[in-house]
Amino acid sequence: MKVNTMHKKFTFYLLALLFLPLVFSYCSANLQSNQIQFGITAAQRGLWDEAIFRWKKAVQSNPDSSAAHNNLAVAYEIKRNWDEAKKEYETALKLSPNNSHIKANFENFMKNLEAREEDDTKKKNEK
């Protein structure tokens, strides 16, 4: 009876030991291969150049990824590269026209762009 219980315990801990490294290696492998997630992590730390690099890679490997295009657009917006940002938002919206997050990003971006253009026109008129 005692031997049986010990055997069960041993099997359980052995399984647990095998299972844990599997979990961590799976997650880290997944993270490393996922350029989008990598870019997000970089962006959250303020490393926008690194994020752009990662999301460009993601676009290269999958040009139909609306997430990669959207994220690139956000990064270009931060970098004040309005033309590229607009292009990327438009591509992202073409790929996922019903995505509410992309829509919200694009609407806010366009409002700012229009306000900026209005300011520039006012300035020109003043001159």
């Binding site: 996922n34 989008i36 997000i40 990824s65 959207n70 917006e77 997050h101 806010n108 700012n112």
Partner: peptide
């Protein structure tokens, strides 16, 4: 400050 969404996929 405005909010933007980064999408995971």
């Amino acid at each position: 400050t405005q909010k933007r969404y980064l999408i995971k996929d």
